[in-house]
Amino acid sequence: MNPYLAGIGLGLVLLAAFVIMGRGLGASGAFSTLVSVGVAKVAPEHASGNAFYGQYLASESNPFKDWLVFEVIGVFVGGFLSGVLAGRIKRSTEKGPSISVRSRLTFAFLGGGLMGFGAKLARGCTSGQALTGGALLNVGSWAFMMCVFAGAYALAYVMRRQWQ
């Protein structure tokens, strides 16, 4: 698909979130809920004493009855639908030609970990900060966005064997 048309589609979805809900998109928040609930299951006292987990457990009823959790469920469904329509559903591992599957998965886990930690520190990820805050001219989001690109380009040379 023409990337600009995909971008306009994405922008209109974001605009719909602004107009209907008065908020933007997100992704990492849903996983924070997941982690918080998990910790609260294993060690309830430990979780309630921690301000970070607390903010995701504050909901009076079920912590999973959360906007972002449902939105991310939608992301899975939407991604799957588009994949089916385009015939792109297949069991595979994305990697460059000169790296083993095992190393690629190790890097994926490591990258995911850095991303999870960084997203929480920055109060949002590419969706919640860069897209949403970008469109609202949010100062922190623009600073964040520049740093994401800076960080990725800075490490790109080191990681080139994984992708090329």
């Binding site: 908020r23 997100g26 992704a27 928040g29 504050a58 919640g128």
Partner: peptide, 11 residues
Amino acid sequence: AGAKKKKKEGC
């Protein structure tokens, strides 16, 4: 009454 439902809206 002042402390209305404070729901996080960020990511």
